[in-house]
Amino acid sequence: MNKSKIVVIGGGTGIPVLLDALRKENIDLTAVVTVADDGGSSGKIRNAVNIAPPGDLRNVLIAMSDMPQFYADILQYRFDETDGPLAGHPLGNLLIAAVSEKQGSISTAIRTLGRFFHISGNIYPSSDQALTLHAVFEDGTEVAGESSIGKHEGLISHVYLTDTDTGGAPIASQNVVNCIMDADMVVMGPGSLYTSILPNVVIPDINKALLETKAKVVYVCNIMTQRGETENFTDADHVRVLHEHLGKKVIDHVLVNIEQVPQDYMDNNAFDEYLVQVKHDFAGLKEQEVKVISNNFLRLVKGGAFHDGEAVAREIMGLSKRQAD
Rank of each mutant, 00 (worst) to 15 (best):
V7Q: 08
G14E: 02
I15T: 14
P16V: 06
L18A: 03
A21C: 01
A21Q: 06
N26I: 11
I27E: 07
T30N: 07
A31S: 11
A31P: 08
V32D: 01
D37Q: 11
G39P: 10
K44D: 07
I45D: 01
R46Q: 06
N47I: 01
A48T: 12
A52L: 04
P53K: 07
P54E: 08
G55C: 14
L57F: 06
N59L: 08
A63W: 00
S65Y: 08
Y71M: 15
A72K: 06
T82S: 15
G84Q: 10
A87R: 08
G92E: 13
L94S: 09
A97R: 01
I110P: 04
R111M: 02
L113I: 01
L133M: 10
H134K: 13
T141L: 13
T141N: 12
G145W: 11
S147M: 11
G154P: 00
D165Y: 05
D165R: 13
A172V: 09
S173D: 02
M181R: 15
M185W: 08
L210I: 09
L210G: 07
K214E: 13
K216W: 04
V218I: 15
Y219E: 07
T225V: 10
F233S: 02
H245I: 10
D252R: 01
L255G: 05
Q260W: 02
V261C: 10
Y265L: 07
Y274W: 10
I293P: 03
V301L: 12
E310M: 11
V312Q: 03
E315C: 11
M317D: 00
L319A: 11
S320E: 11
